[in-house]
């Protein structure tokens, strides 16, 4: 499968990573190489094989629906790159 520059730019947009046109070219070349290499998996017969989701060693657990860790507002905000009072701030989203 080929990955053209347009496709790489679209993937970068989905991943919210800003790329220059030059970077798109570089990543396109690398990604094409890697994708070509992983396509050897197409040789494997996977008929009736279930997908492995985790190792199956841990079992899902239920716990009581109660607060076990809270009242840590200042901790949560302590690494905010920008904030106003008790709020994280972002550029205006709604006109």
């Amino acid at each position: 499968m080929s990955l053209d520059a347009k496709k790489v730019a679209r993937i970068a947009r989905l991943a919210r990573i800003g790329l220059s046109d030059d970077e798109v070219q570089t990543y396109q070349k690398d990604m094409e190489g890697i994708i070509g290499w992983v396509e050897q998996l197409n040789e494997v017969d996977i008929t009736d094989v279930p997908p492995m989701v985790g190792t199956g060693l841990a079992t899902a657990r239920l716990r009581d629906d109660i607060v076990t860790d809270g009242e840590r507002r200042d901790d949560v905000l302590s690494n905010a790159p920008e904030r106003e009072g008790l709020f994280f701030t972002v550029p205006k989203v709604v006109e």
Partner: peptide, 18 residues
């Protein structure tokens, strides 16, 4: 770039992310 870690600002939220 919103809750913790490095932030580089931009004119929109998407631009900030990118």
């Amino acid at each position: 770039g919103v809750r913790y870690g490095k932030r580089v600002t931009g004119p929109s939220l998407d631009a900030l992310y990118e």
